[in-house]
Simulated assay, not measured.
Amino acid sequence: MDQIEFMQLIEETLEAESGTLSYTDRLDEIDWDSLANISFIAEVDNRLGVTVNSEQLAKSLTIADLFDTIKVAIQAQ
């Protein structure tokens, strides 16, 4: 999954309009909550067959951190 596809996933998860979010946005400023976490985990599993580490996810502060979490999960496969 490249950065563009990843940003589309985040926009879908938050039901945000395309192009309204930035890679550097802080999760606490874009209404990322526990429901977004669950949706994100499910979509990553569905699209990539990858299990997201919930501890690493909880440490994520930005969209970029979420992307790094996905990269780590893919490498761990």
Score class of each variant (00 low, 15 high):
Ser22Tyr: 01
Phe6Asp: 13
Gln8Ser: 14
Ile30Cys: 08
Asn46Leu: 09
Glu29Pro: 05
Val72Gly: 03
Ile74Gln: 11
Thr20Tyr: 00
Ala73Lys: 07
Ile10Cys: 00
Asn46Val: 03
Leu21Ala: 01
Glu55Lys: 08
Ile63Val: 15
Asp2Tyr: 03
Glu5Pro: 02
Gly49Cys: 08
Val72Ala: 13
Ser60Thr: 12
Lys59Glu: 13
Leu21Phe: 02
Thr62Pro: 10
Ala64Gly: 12
Ile38Ala: 15
Ala76Met: 05
Ile10Asn: 03
Leu14Arg: 03
Gln3Tyr: 07
Ala58Met: 13
Asp25Tyr: 00
Leu9Cys: 00
Asn37Ser: 13
Gly19Asn: 01
Phe6Pro: 14
Ser54Gly: 04
Lys59Pro: 02
Ser54Arg: 07
Asn37Ala: 06
Ile63Cys: 11
Leu9Pro: 02
Leu21Ser: 04
Arg47Gln: 15
Leu35Lys: 06
Ala16Glu: 13
Leu57Tyr: 00
Leu66Ala: 09
Ile70Gly: 01
Asp65Cys: 15
Leu57Gly: 03
Tyr23Leu: 03
Asp68Tyr: 08
Ser54Asn: 05
Met1Ala: 14
Arg26Asn: 07
Thr69Val: 15
Lys71Tyr: 01
Asp45Cys: 05
Tyr23Cys: 00
Ala16Asp: 04
Gln8Ala: 11
Lys59Thr: 11
Gln56Asn: 09
Leu48Ser: 12
Asp45Met: 06
Thr51Phe: 05
Tyr23Gly: 00
Leu14Ser: 08
Gln77Leu: 07
Ile63Gln: 07
Glu29Met: 11
Ile10Met: 04
Ile63Glu: 04
Thr13Val: 15
Ile63Trp: 01
Glu29Ile: 03
Asp25Ala: 06
Ser34Lys: 10
Ile4Gly: 11
Phe40Cys: 07
Ala64Phe: 06
Asp25Met: 02
Ile10Arg: 02
Glu43Lys: 14
Val72Cys: 06
Ile74Met: 09
Lys71Leu: 11
Leu61Ser: 10
Gln75Asp: 14
Asp25His: 05
Met1Phe: 07
Gln3Lys: 15
Phe6Glu: 11
Val50His: 06
Asn37Tyr: 02
Lys71Ile: 14
Ile70Ser: 01
Gln56Ile: 08
Ala42Phe: 12
Ile74Lys: 12
Gln75Leu: 12
Thr20Ser: 13
Ile10Pro: 04
Ala58Tyr: 04
Met1Leu: 11
Ser60Lys: 02
Ile63Asn: 06
Ser39Lys: 14
Trp32Asn: 10
Ala73Asp: 03
Ile74Gly: 02
Gly19Ile: 01
Phe6Met: 14
Leu35Ala: 09
Val44Phe: 04
Thr24Gly: 06
Glu15Gln: 15
Gln3Arg: 14
Met1Gln: 10
Arg47Asn: 14
Gln8Lys: 15
Ile30Trp: 04
Ala42Gly: 11
Trp32Cys: 11
